[in-house]
Amino acid sequence: MKKVLVVETNIQKYAGTNEATGLWLGESAEFLDEVYQQGIDVDFVSPLGGFVPLDPRSMKYIDQAIMNIYLEENFIQNGLIHTKKPSEINPNDYHAIYFTGGHGVMWDFPDNKELQELALAIYENNGYILSVCHGIAGLLNIKDREGSFLISGKKITGFTKTEEFLAGKMNKVPFFNQTAAEERNAQFKKRRFYKAFALKDGRIITGQNPFSVRAVAKLYLEEVQSCKQF
């Protein structure tokens, strides 16, 4: 059975500041909770490989399900300490690639050519590209073989400008994901701020904010159940 490749950030601080950022824990742990229940295995990758910092603010939103994943030795060792480098990944091993969030991804996801090639290879092999919240940054610059942005014309979602304002990060982020997606001709969709919302367009599934993780996972799992080759 093919696996899901979970992409996490290596960025520890907002650029030019001493303010901590990193992986939003629930955006990895809640997704894992859903796919593990269906017997699907995962691997973890980050732009540099190795250590993945946790955004300390995300620790305020831990429930028992997240804690159960967080305390697993596999997650600690492979998802936080020893993530793989993109060069160590064979895209043929995966049915989907999932870009997690946390503000850090806005610095190390968008321009990483290796991650873009992995995502495109999985997608071209009838696989899925998934993201949640700021993880949409990993989709922004993926181009197809004709040189067009993969998200062009696609219905997608991610962390909105309104949510960025409410998070108090308008002056700390290098760009706005919503604006960047719209500039690439994506059909950016959104619902009320900080409410669960996910949507699927073909084999691209995206979620708006940290409260949308399970919605993304469930849309993906619906596809898995109907996919005869999985």
Rank of each mutant, 00 (worst) to 15 (best):
I97S: 00
V105M: 01
I122L: 02
Y94M: 06
C133T: 10
L120N: 09
A181H: 04
W107V: 02
E114P: 10
V173M: 05
L140G: 04
F99D: 05
L166N: 05
Y61I: 02
N68S: 15
D108P: 00
I151L: 11
G79Q: 02
F99Y: 08
T160M: 01
C133W: 00
G50P: 12
N125Y: 01
I76H: 11
L120W: 03
G158L: 06
N68D: 15
K155R: 14
L71A: 09
L166I: 00
Q64I: 08
F188K: 01
Q187W: 05
V52D: 13
A119S: 08
F44Q: 11
F175M: 07
T162H: 07
E164Y: 08
Y70E: 15
K113I: 11
F109P: 03
K155N: 13
E164L: 01
I69S: 06
Y98A: 08
E164D: 13
K85Y: 12
I76A: 03
Q178L: 01
G104A: 04
E183Q: 11
N92A: 13
A180L: 00
I122P: 09
E73T: 10
E182M: 04
F176E: 00
C133V: 01
I122Q: 06
W107R: 00
P174A: 05
K143I: 14
L139T: 13
N68P: 13
G147V: 05
D93V: 09
T160H: 02
E163C: 07
M59P: 05
I89V: 15
V132R: 01
K189M: 13
F51I: 15
L54R: 07
Y61D: 07
S131W: 04
K169R: 12
T100I: 08
F159V: 03
K155S: 14
F188A: 11
V105N: 08
G135N: 14
L150H: 06
F176L: 12
V105Q: 06
L120E: 00
I62N: 09
V132G: 07
Q116S: 10
G147L: 04
G50H: 12
S58N: 01
G135M: 12
K189N: 09
I62E: 02
K190L: 07
T83I: 14
F159R: 07
D63V: 02
S131V: 05
V173K: 08
R184M: 05
P174D: 03
I129Y: 12
D111F: 15
S131N: 12
T179A: 01
N78A: 01
D43S: 07
H82A: 15
I129F: 11
Y128P: 02
N171H: 04
Y123R: 09
N112V: 03
I66M: 15
G79Y: 04
T83N: 11
V132L: 11
I142R: 09
G79E: 03
L48H: 07
L80V: 08
G79W: 02
A65M: 02
S152W: 10
A180T: 08
